[in-house]
């Protein structure tokens, strides 16, 4: 297992300090894992220890400052994201976990007892927003029907087309075009974009299910995976002509797909009436990278097909996750 060399350089703060933190509930950013008496700890002191990870993943956050607001004592997390801090029982009661570019985590409202060893797991969240780019929704039906489509994106809409007015209502038929029931205008697909913070690769244990590709083979790679996922030639071309140039910016790229359930939970909920007979949602996370290592083991992601039948809905979108900014 290679260790993760990712950490945010201090300069990143300058790039991102204009963005507001999108965090609503700071209390969910850490958990007290254990709180035990330790006789080895001297009277008048206690110890906090633990680890800081990126998001809800297993990516450790290195060089993160962990300190007390009262005594100004602090320590930095190591390459595994771990820290240990000896504290003064008389004064230390509020702690912060902070790194430039990441939203500060404050630990208070906890009774830190003398001669205790308190273990904390903290999850850091990036302060800047990721744009969810170009999700497009295609609807197909051999028999004409009127569908109502509602989306619940994580984050805020930045652009929709046609205009999303608490939902879209369109007529779907075999012409390949959708007709907006209100304006009677025609569209080949429905489009939305949104931005939110905290979009990141999913990890399983200490691995990332996904792919690292040599970008010379981007087109073959995407054609292969997207056919496997069941996209048709129009959907595939729209996808490849949008993402191909982005992926090919560097020699290598890290790629992970959020399919169906992952799309629902990480990107946006989708509610369609009547209920589609077949639905496929494909979201790509990609990072152009200069070499083929990302500091974690990448294990090939298993992708499965889907069968088109009756009222079929296909959606695709993606986000670029800038790992170059995270690298030292």
């Amino acid at each position: 297992m290679k260790k993760l060399p990712l950490f945010v350089i201090g300069l990143l703060a300058i790039n991102t300090s204009f963005c507001e933190s999108g965090l609503d509930n700071p209390s969910s950013n850490y958990t007290i894992v254990s709180d035990l008496v330790d006789k080895k700890i001297k009277k008048g002191t206690f110890v906090i220890q633990g680890e800081v990870r990126m998001f809800s993943s297993t990516f450790p956050l290195e060089n993160c400052k962990v300190g007390s607001l009262q005594s100004e004592t602090f320590t930095m997390t190591n390459a595994e994201g771990r820290f240990t801090l000896l504290c003064n029982s008389a004064i230390d009661s509020t702690f912060y976990i902070y790194q430039d570019g990441w939203a500060e985590i404050t630990i208070s409202d906890y009774d830190f007892k003398d001669r205790h060893r308190i273990t904390i797991s903290a999850y850091a969240h990036q302060e800047f927003n990721h744009v969810k780019r170009k999700p497009v929704i295609y609807l197909y039906s051999e028999t004409e029907l009127t569908a109502s489509i509602k989306i619940n994106p994580m984050g805020e809409f930045t652009f929709t087309y046609p205009l999303y007015n608490a939902g879209w209502n369109v007529t779907v038929n075999n012409s390949g075009m959708l007709t907006d029931t209100k304006t009677q205008k025609q569209y080949p697909y429905l489009f939305w974009e949104a931005e939110s913070s905290d979009l990141f690769y999913k990890t399983v244990g200490n691995t990332i299910p996904g792919f690292i590709i040599n970008t010379d083979s981007t087109i073959q790679f995407l054609e292969e995976k997207l056919s496997l996922l069941g996209l048709n030639s129009t959907e595939m071309t729209d996808f490849i002509t949008f993402w191909g140039p982005i992926i090919e910016r560097e020699d290598f790229a890290l790629i992970q797909f959020f399919v169906d359930e992952d799309y629902n939970s990480e990107i946006a909920g989708l509610e369609i009436t009547p209920k589609p007979d077949a639905i496929r949602r494909v979201y790509i996370l990609c990072s152009p990278i200069k070499d083929s290592m990302v500091g974690m083991d990448v294990v090939p992601q298993t992708l499965t097909g889907f069968e088109r039948k009756g009222f079929t809905v296909v959606e695709w979108g993606g986000s670029e996750i800038d790992l170059t900014n995270l690298k030292p």
Binding site: V131, K134, V136, F159, Y161, Q186, P188, Y189, F191
Partner: peptide, 17 residues
């Protein structure tokens, strides 16, 4: 036409805004 227009608009509006 509608297809060409939508492709154009959905590509460029996110850049313009």
């Amino acid at each position: 036409n509608e297809k060409e227009k939508t492709d154009f608009i959905t590509f460029w509006v996110p850049e313009l805004i």
